[in-house]
């Protein structure tokens, strides 16, 4: 793949903008028809490749978001017979994939590897997580919680929720839960309200639209 792209780039170099004063020298490009045809001769995707000479159907739907009416196999109840069917289909796909020579663009790990109507193969590696997954540690003792409360009460401006969470290795939500500071929260809220009042019309509208769009996330997924 990468070699092909490089060669194509080489085939059409940038035109020189400025007429240079240097004498013209002949430079040869890979622009002949034969070379281009050779470069663009990519192997076909497996879903387009006919397996036998008999007439077959080519099923290659465009990529789209999965249908929510298609229940993932993990969500199927134990007694549902679709579980057995899916397992059989997956086994068959496995066997076929091992027995057949696949084209390099449909190598394992590429989107063309699995058909969109099949569950992903368990051997395929999972994509990277968006956030680092974490385990809940439950490591804070009663004395730690007392300490958090004391610090927060003593100087809420220095010991904010973020600082306390970093110090004790817990979440900000937990700090807010055990050491609530109502006065500080009210003050901060008042400041925010004051700064919101200074917003102009455009900014306010933009923020409101953003809120409205956010409410749609859970509605039209």
């Amino acid at each position: 793949m990468s070699t092909t792209c490089k060669a194509l780039l080489r085939a059409c170099p940038l035109q020189r903008q400025q007429p240079s004063l240097l004498p013209l020298t002949q430079c040869r490009h890979e622009s002949s028809t034969r070379r281009h045809r050779k470069l663009l001769a990519l192997p076909e995707a497996p879903s387009y490749t006919r397996r036998s000479t008999a007439p077959t159907l080519v099923f290659n739907p465009p990529s789209s978001a999965p249908n929510v009416y298609h229940t993932p196999s993990k969500f199927l109840p134990k007694e549902d017979k679709r579980l057995r069917l899916y397992a059989a289909a997956q086994q068959h796909a496995h066997k076929v994939a091992h027995s057949r020579q696949t084209s390099p663009i449909a190598a394992p790990g590429t989107p063309l590897h699995t058909g969109s109507h099949l569950p992903p193969r368990p051997s395929a590696s999972l994509p990277a997580p968006v956030r680092e997954p974490y385990e809940k540690k439950y490591h804070l003792t009663e004395s730690d919680v007392q300490e958090i409360r004391r610090l927060r009460k003593q100087d809420p401006n220095t010991w904010t929720r973020v600082k306390l969470a970093e110090k004790f290795g817990c979440s900000q939500f937990f700090v807010g839960m055990v050491a609530k500071n109502v006065k500080k929260a009210e003050r901060v809220e008042k400041e925010h309200r004051a700064s919101r009042k200074k917003w102009g019309n455009r900014k306010r509208l933009a923020k409101e639209d953003r809120e409205r769009r956010k409410a749609l996330w859970g509605r039209d997924a």
């Binding site: 929510v68 969500f75 109840p77 997924a221």
Partner: peptide, 14 residues
């Protein structure tokens, strides 16, 4: 968030 909502819908629309 949209992915989580889609997963919930997939559960409920069994």
């Amino acid at each position: 968030v949209r992915a989580a909502a889609a997963a919930l819908k997939a559960w409920y629309l069994y």
